[in-house]
Design a protein around this nucleic acid. Sequence first.
DNA 1: TTGTTTACCGAACATTCGGTCAGTTGACAA
DNA 2: TTGTCAACTGACCGAATGTTCGGTAAACAA
Lengths: 201, 201
Amino acid sequence: MATSNPTRQRRRGHDPESVLSIAVGVFNERGYDGTSMEDLARALGVTKSAIYYHVPGKEQLLGRALDRALDGLFEMVADERAARGVAIDRLEWVLRQSVRILVDRLPYVTLLLRVRGNSATEQAALERRREFDRFVSSLVKEAAVDGSIRADVDPALVTRLLFGTVNSITEWYQPARGASADDLADALLKITFNGLRADAA
Amino acid sequence: MATSNPTRQRRRGHDPESVLSIAVGVFNERGYDGTSMEDLARALGVTKSAIYYHVPGKEQLLGRALDRALDGLFEMVADERAARGVAIDRLEWVLRQSVRILVDRLPYVTLLLRVRGNSATEQAALERRREFDRFVSSLVKEAAVDGSIRADVDPALVTRLLFGTVNSITEWYQPARGASADDLADALLKITFNGLRADAA
DNA sequence: TTGTTTACCGAACATTCGGTCAGTTGACAA
DNA sequence: TTGTCAACTGACCGAATGTTCGGTAAACAA
């Protein structure tokens, strides 16, 4: 019984999941195009050919990683808290959730933000990302129309700067030594909604 | 006399400058590692080998491009307007200038912001960039100490979010159809200093 | 006319690339 | 003890990589 337990100690080795998570780490260090399968093999402690036992190839590895990031974003968009309520409250919620997803799935989101469309896989990811951007942009526009955010800056520009700020977190955030996702979101909302100046509320 | 005029119409062809500017454009489209010399040759309308008549190689092309961006930033740091005056005013000036440099040298700055340290050339650029970041960070710290920016967010975090916002401009800005550098800087300073909320000053 | 320089081409170079495949290893079941 | 199978190795493939080099056509100088 004990020996046939499917959760018993496995013979050591990799599986598609461990290959993916290690690969994404290397992709983020050297860039996807700057990473060879030999680099991945070294990081995994196996030979190049062993990787092909677990995953179909380099580009599928990228595709799976990008889906991890994009699926998170679209789950958020599907939530009713993104659809119901005052626009600026929904915007705040979406911003908080974006920071949370970015932190929870940091390596995957980081990879997504660096994609430039060099292959069909990358272009598909870019298209899904643009769809998410359009959703956020419409939210900002709503908040501008109902007068809850300043009217003297173009909403499209606001969206870009706002999500530029959020996305820039991937450039420096280290989960180990640093603020939690909530702390980060608090600080970001304080600054973006109320401004840097000391006289702010 | 007219025939020996050094500024007379040149026989058509490329020079190191035109090769650099076209190459940087392709680097930004496909990523440096994702760009082959064949890609560059196609964009230049010549064969691969012709490139080596004008420049020593791919990596030197990258190095020259990165220096264009970094030299601009360090010229700004050397200006007395970055050294004299109230901290928050100096910070505002540095932010405005950063936007200006980013717009003026858009492709070079864009390339710089994507460098990950894959070669000695890239590592040297990263080190110069970190030096610039330290300068800005000390400015923000000063402004926090003298009470001109909010004290409830860590100055190091403020610096990162602030320059994350500025740098994110490279992700979407198109000089042709869009705001000028001054318009951009105005919008950015309104949002970052006074916040998004409609009740802001 | 002859010689020189500029800007390039085409072929080839060694190396690295992503990927394949036949075989090997060691843990486990029967 | 034998057989099975997951997990891997090592040799190899064709294609693509950055770079070099001998040659050359056109523009210009003498």
